[in-house]
Computed example of a mutant assay.
Amino acid sequence: MVSMFRTALVAGALTTGVASAVSTASAAPFPEVNGHTDNWVNEGTPSVEYDNGYKVDSQAEVRSALDQCKDRSVSCVTTTVSSPTQVTKWFDVENTGTGTGPIENCGQGEGEINQTIGGTHTFTWGWNVGGSVDVTLKDVLKVGATAQYNESTAEAKSGDIRITVKKGEKGMLKMGYDMERSISDVTIQGGKFGVAKITGLRLEIPLKGAMRVGTDVVQCGGTLLNGR
């Protein structure tokens, strides 16, 4: 796998794909995860327990309890279970110029393939009580403050890079985002169901300006991030 490059993050709406300018080369500073297979957010099962002993782990019911925190008459206190962690989440991206998937150099020809490839990927983030992050709740609960959260739950970003595929290799453009992950408990007082405690609230949001672009190159018999 060749070096990865940091790009400038360009803020935009979900449907906006803005070409990213590649700046100085730098390796991702955080542990790297495969965005095609990673399911950290939903691996944890949140639950809510009321002061009468009733406990339920239905995602819909936990979200219903959490939504009470939007009411100013309800007191919600968040406790972070452990220190937030950061990862770089990578995805293989189709080449918008050819749309043919991996660039393969697996035949009988000689030499290496050098070309510039580009594409767009829509990054999404959320938590494990109904997908997308509710901005109002995020602010009330004071979660994700250190991540300089961008107030949307999905953004389409574009990037391009020069790829080199040697004889016997195949490769694709890959795009990544530095993400912050946290697990919190939330104590609720004054809600319609009385005192309640939500445990195992998982949140994943992007670090500001932390979109990356690189190349995913493997041997012809190997497997790319997207399983090809």
Rank of each mutant, 00 (worst) to 15 (best):
S3P: 15
S3Y: 11
R6M: 05
T7P: 11
A11Q: 10
T15M: 12
T15N: 12
V18L: 10
V18I: 10
A19V: 09
V22L: 12
V22A: 10
V22N: 11
S23I: 06
A25S: 04
S26F: 05
A27V: 03
A27S: 05
A28G: 05
E32T: 08
N34F: 12
T37H: 00
W40G: 06
V41R: 09
V41Y: 04
N42V: 02
G44A: 14
P46S: 04
V48D: 08
V48W: 06
V48F: 08
D51S: 13
Y54G: 15
K55L: 03
V56E: 14
D57Y: 06
D57A: 08
D57G: 08
S58M: 06
A60K: 04
E61I: 13
E61D: 10
S64D: 07
A65G: 07
D67L: 15
D67I: 10
D67N: 15
C69Y: 01
K70N: 14
D71T: 07
S73L: 06
T80V: 12
S83I: 12
S83A: 15
P84E: 08
P84R: 06
P84C: 09
T85F: 06
V87I: 11
T88Q: 14
K89G: 00
V93R: 06
T96N: 13
T96Q: 07
C106L: 04
Q108I: 03
G109S: 13
G119N: 04
T120W: 03
H121A: 05
T122W: 03
W125R: 11
W127D: 12
V129K: 00
G130W: 02
G131Y: 09
T136H: 12
K138E: 09
D139T: 13
L141S: 07
V143K: 00
A145M: 03
A145W: 01
T146K: 13
Q148H: 12
Q148R: 14
Q148K: 14
Q148W: 15
A154K: 09
A154V: 08
E155W: 14
E155S: 15
K157L: 07
S158W: 15
I161Q: 13
I161D: 12
I161M: 11
R162M: 06
K166P: 01
G168K: 02
E169D: 11
E169G: 02
K170D: 01
K170V: 01
K170P: 00
M172F: 01
M175V: 12
G176A: 09
Y177E: 03
D178F: 01
D178L: 01
M179V: 11
R181H: 11
S182R: 00
S184K: 05
D185N: 06
T187F: 10
I188P: 03
G190R: 02
G191I: 00
A196D: 05
K197C: 05
I198F: 02
I198L: 01
T199G: 07
L201V: 00
L203F: 08
I205W: 05
I205Q: 10
L207I: 13
L207A: 12
L207C: 11
L207R: 14
K208V: 11
A210N: 13
A210V: 13
R212Q: 02
V213M: 12
V217G: 14
V218N: 13
V218I: 14
C220I: 11
G222N: 04
L224S: 02
L225Q: 03
